[in-house]
Write a protein that binds this DNA or RNA. Structure first.
Lengths: 236, 236
DNA sequence: TGGCAATGTGTAATAATTACACTAAGTTTG
DNA sequence: CAAACTTAGTGTAATTATTACACATTGCCA
């Protein structure tokens, strides 16, 4: 078997979330190598077939890097999508013909997700990604394949998870205000919270620790900055 | 493509839980068609390759029926396992050679789970299942492939889920006592609860409704019987 | 210096959680 | 038929979590 033989039946797709201080965003690629204008307009999640000799987790990391340039992202498996006709829409087939040996083969895909602070990473799209772009989750257009369903599932997963683990520190700067954190929770859960109750609840955890610093350069009373203390968190 | 062409790279495995009033049990098959005694000793989760023209959900239902005779079980996807060498242990290969066209092909598997009341179903193993047996989760031996990992993941999934939805009515008789329900929660979560607090919490939900009936034929004060009211549950 | 914009704070009412021990009912046994 | 056995069923007080709600403070800017 050649070293990087491709498994024609199994792919991975990555749903990478970020936060622009107001809204959740998701990372999409714009397809290149299409033959028609139509094809080029379609966005999709970064994803591709796996190699025969790599784990699913490794495949997800590799594919994400190849398509977007993001490296060392901790990806978590979400769900597997396997409708027999999930890639057989005409636009999708047109495009697959330009990049795959067996564009018609049935492909099941394993979805992965992660949260990152987009400020900390550079996007350097390559492979068949003409471009990689952050799109507000609320503005996501019709995507290729069943990628809207995949995004939906990843969002559900995220909502579930934020109740269990205090996610989201990956999405914020190292030092953040409680208002930023609250906006983030509100964006993920698509809800509004009372400021006092939110602060009380957060500070009760003890691993969001206040720094003796304040915001700079805002046209109002500057907020205190906080950081997430990983060691305090893990010892709970 | 023949109507039921097999996809050589993708399988499904089913983790079916039941409850014997004391402990959680899981449904395993005993492999038949092995050539050596060794192979015959090994148990595994019911699972097999999918067909090219069926969804993953359908595949899981079909495979479960073929191997164990269980029909109309609501299966829920849990996780996908795809280590390149997950089926390459010697025992597993020996056995696969006896039932598969390409025993060495890499197979990723999508795990499904369900909870059933075993009293309501008959096991009628067929296909390559010599037998189908209920095994206490705490007594599960070394299984074939990576099936111990899959079982572990399904158990985690179950523990998570019981916090969100009041599962487990599938596991009990239609009419049950609160002590039975408590034992079930304790078995799933591997924990102990205070009787009074547990009862209060359950009855606060309002969809566990008391019947005007009592246990019969027990050598002590008979307990009142309750039932789960689905319509009251869904309108919450 | 007055206005703007967001920060930061307390309390009272209600609900949920925890810890804890005895009486009641029906069966069995002597 | 009475005593013993086994599990069912119940209440309360202390603590903690949740909810709803309004105003003074800080720093910048015009």
């Amino acid at each position: 078997m050649p070293q990087h033989a491709i498994n024609p039946n199994v792919s991975v797709d990555c749903v990478i979330f970020s936060f622009n201080n107001q809204e959740l965003e998701v990372l999409l690629i714009e397809r290149s190598a299409g033959n028609t204008d139509k094809v080029d307009e379609i966005k999709a999640l970064p994803g591709n077939l796996i190699y025969e000799d790599e784990t699913l987790d490794c495949a997800a990391e590799r594919v994400l890097t190849e398509l977007t340039g993001l490296e060392n992202i901790f990806l978590e498996q979400v769900y597997t999508f396997g409708d027999p006709d999930r890639i057989s829409k005409k636009h999708d087939q047109d495009w697959l013909r330009s990049i795959r040996a067996h564009p018609e083969a049935r492909v099941i895909t394993v979805a992965y997700t992660s949260l990152i602070n987009k400020e900390r990473f550079n996007l350097t799209p390559s492979s068949f990604a003409r471009n990689a772009v952050w799109v507000k989750v609320k503005d996501v257009p019709q995507l290729g394949f069943d990628h809207n369903d995949i995004l939906e599932k990843a969002l559900d997963h995220l909502k579930q998870k934020i109740y269990i683990k205090p996610l989201g520190y990956e999405l914020l700067p190292d030092r953040f205000t409680l208002a930023q954190l609250q906006k983030l929770y509100e964006a993920i859960l698509d809800d509004k919270f009372d400021k006092r109750n939110f602060r009380r609840k957060i500070l009760r955890t003890y691993f969001i620790v206040p720094l003796n610093e304040k915001q700079q350069g805002v046209a109002h009373k500057p907020a205190g900055l906080y950081r997430f203390d990983k060691s305090l968190f893990h010892q709970m």
